[in-house]
Design a protein around this nucleic acid. Structure first.
Lengths: 207, 207
DNA sequence: TAGATTGTTAATCGATTAACAATC
DNA sequence: TAGATTGTTAATCGATTAACAATC
């Protein structure tokens, strides 16, 4: 029954999730599509269309129950699944993520970090053990993970990405400024492309 | 004459720029819209339409000269302008950017970093001096900057963002997981929203 | 000249917006 | 019941794709 969900809708789901979280924390119990749209810079139609991709969560004449909608969206996104993830490359960005980023809130459990630097392998950062990259296969055999976060130098990125695909990961969160072009239909790549983002800003402020 | 450029086109420009850079480095001198499209996962029509938003850079029967196109796109994006930028918040992500990110390549000169932590204020990281946040106004008066990079804790983000708008910056590169909702038409906000990105990946791998 | 490939117009597709009957 | 607001269908808008004359 579920017709394909467009990327535009998918990208809005996390935003709805965060807004509903805020409303929940403020003790708001109901919200209308109009009000939600207003506070998020969307249209009411858009909000209702988006939610109706997944079923009717509202009540005519009333609006949406914040708690219900929040938890519906949580399970639509899958943030309650807690997929296992590892991170490869414990440089500045890797460390920044390990120490400060809340993977759990986003639906993941970070179970290990990998690096080649002997100086850091064997340490534990924010409860995450740092292992040697050579242990990847053995580790996967024991603890199959679904997502690999790539925060390693560009030069090794493609090789490691292909390795991940061979192991059978479902997703790659890619911080290397490289377009991975994974052929495999079963692997989803999500890029965080700093330079594209900053160049976009450059374009928009350039007159 | 220039009709409004759609966001879809704007977001593709940095990718073209990077691909052309690669081609240039490989010594390729000409490229057709078909080949470029193929290697980037677009259609030839799309490539030609995109370029023709800005003028005709190709030659019928031949294709596009890589060097020419590369430098045309550089000046369309404005990466040759070297806008002045500062960074506020020298935590993990701030340091990662200061130490590893090539602002210059993306069209910016990073001229200073700001923090409130006495332990780091006064230091110099990768040639970037770290100043106290209280010096922002005085610094701006001497060295007006166009972009502020926000890598500070969420709690201070809105206040600092509004401060930046008052100073008159043109753009904010926002790493705080917060929707800034700047009203000012003259200020462009570009978000790097880690949690939205990771939740999107979560959605796409959740079955 | 013949072949290739652009620039550009027209057709298609998909996403957003508007409208409104259903209903709480 | 009357007012409000959803779910959903239809209309509009914009972006992508296709087609092809222009031309190198």
């Amino acid at each position: 029954m579920s017709r394909r969900i467009s990327m535009a809708v998918i990208r809005r789901m996390p935003k709805y999730y965060r807004y509903l979280n805020d409303l929940k924390n403020e003790g708001v119990s109901k919200i209308s599509s109009r009000k939600l749209a207003e506070s998020m810079g969307l249209t009411a139609s858009q909000v209702r269309q988006d939610f109706n991709c997944f079923g009717g969560f509202g009540q005519q004449g009333y609006g949406y129950n914040v708690d219900t909608l929040h938890s519906e969206i949580a399970s639509i996104i899958g943030v309650n699944r807690k997929h296992k993830a590892i991170i490869i490359g414990v440089g500045n960005i890797g460390r920044a993520l390990i120490n400060n980023f809340d993977f759990y809130q986003c639906g993941f459990t970070m179970i290990a970090a990998f690096d080649t630097d002997k100086a850091i392998v064997g340490k534990v950062l924010n409860k995450i053990p740092v292992l040697d990259v050579s242990e990847l296969d053995a580790f996967y055999a024991e603890n199959p993970f679904e997502v690999a976060v790539l925060t390693l130098p560009k030069a090794y990125a493609r090789e490691i990405a292909e390795h991940m695909v061979r192991l059978g990961v479902k997703g790659i969160w890619n911080f290397t400024n490289l377009d991975l072009r994974i052929g495999d239909e079963n692997v989803t790549v999500e890029d965080v492309h700093f330079s594209d983002s900053l160049m976009t800003l450059c374009f928009r402020i350039t007159d």
